[in-house]
């Protein structure tokens, strides 16, 4: 299978590998996929006071396409608002990396990871708001 240069670059030089403090109020964590399916992505976002994603980190267990998809989205979400990040669609990821058809699920998983991280962040903020009232 021939992979695109962009995909190989993200696989060989993944951006933003790492871990943010899961317990921090400003950090949303998304953990999607399943070991039994051969793909697990953990995506974390750190959101500033203005609701802008200032940092993003990932760790992925999976094939080269899964690693590249998650690496790519950490780059994309940085500097975006959480709403903008949640609007990223898997087709954009698949197109950018020129994923072959059997690897489209990797981009779906990356989209799910963003949404899960955003949901986690919102839940944390929501709970805090409720507690303040």
């Amino acid at each position: 299978m021939a992979y695109s240069d962009k995909l190989i670059d993200h696989y060989e030089n993944p951006r933003n590998v790492g871990t943010l403090d899961k317990s921090s109020e400003d950090v949303g964590t998304g953990l999607v996929g399943a070991p039994a399916c051969g793909d697990v992505m953990k995506l974390q976002i750190k959101v500033d006071a203005q609701g802008i994603i200032e940092d993003a980190k990932f760790k992925t267990f999976g094939c080269g396409s899964a690693i590249a998809s998650s690496s790519l989205v950490t780059e994309w979400v940085k500097g975006k608002s959480v709403d903008e990040a949640a609007a990223i669609r898997n087709t954009e990821i698949a197109e950018h990396l020129a994923l072959p058809p059997v690897k489209i699920h990797c981009s779906v998983l990356a989209e799910d990871a963003i949404k899960a991280a955003v949901a986690d962040y919102r839940e944390k903020k929501g709970i805090k708001k409720d507690a303040a009232e």
Binding site: G33, D39, V40, H105
Partner: peptide, 24 residues
């Protein structure tokens, strides 16, 4: 492994089987 969330969990002593994974 440095890039693997499962390896990280294993190092932290989290049992991967204890997590409810959404199989896709």
């Amino acid at each position: 492994r440095e890039m693997s969330p499962l390896w990280e969990m294993a190092q932290e002593g989290i049992d991967i089987k204890s997590i409810e994974w959404a199989e896709h």
